[in-house]
């Protein structure tokens, strides 16, 4: 099977997209978010999500979330077999509505934080984390 120049370019573009696009966004993510928000609208901004651009190993990826005044922040990994990661419910003695933890990512994908803010509205932030494959199995 031979490739024409055009086919070659298309193939190359497809391959490039494959490396850039995260795992297929999964319908389960929207379901989990809807369950958390009760179907309310989710605005961008109002919640900060810190995660590395490139993770050396998907087994232990440090992430932090913060949303001033939030009562809860839900963390999701859109490309994992199940998207749920953790939900932080902040009590009256939380000095800040912020938390850090370490999470598992099955591959390059979007990490999403949804915060329930003090006024009852919802905010969203997301970040793509590239997960590299190690050189040696060890």
């Amino acid at each position: 099977m031979d490739f024409t120049r055009r086919e070659t370019l298309a193939l190359g573009a497809g391959a490039a997209l494959m490396t850039i696009l995260p795992f297929r966004a999964n319908a389960a993510v929207e379901d989990v978010i809807a369950e958390f928000t009760g179907g309310a609208a989710v605005a961008d901004g109002g919640v900060d999500l810190t995660a590395p651009e490139i993770a050396e190993n998907g087994n232990t990826v440090p992430v932090s979330v913060e949303a001033a005044g939030a009562s809860a922040i839900m963390l999701l990994a859109a490309g994992n077999p199940t998207p749920g990661v953790a939900t932080f419910n902040f009590g009256p003695l939380a000095a800040t509505q912020a938390a850090s933890t370490r999470i598992r990512l099955a591959g390059t994908q979007d990490v999403i934080a949804i915060a329930k803010l003090a006024d009852g509205s919802f905010a969203r932030a997301s970040k793509t984390v590239k997960v590299t494959i190690g050189g040696c199995g060890g």
């Binding site: 099977m1 031979d2 490739f3 024409t4 086919e7 070659t8 193939l11 190359g12 391959a15 490039a16 490396t19």
Partner: peptide, 12 residues
């Protein structure tokens, strides 16, 4: 062309 096409993919 096959080899060249694959090379292009590999490079990308």
């Amino acid at each position: 062309m096959k080899i060249k096409a694959l090379t292009a993919v590999t490079l990308l």
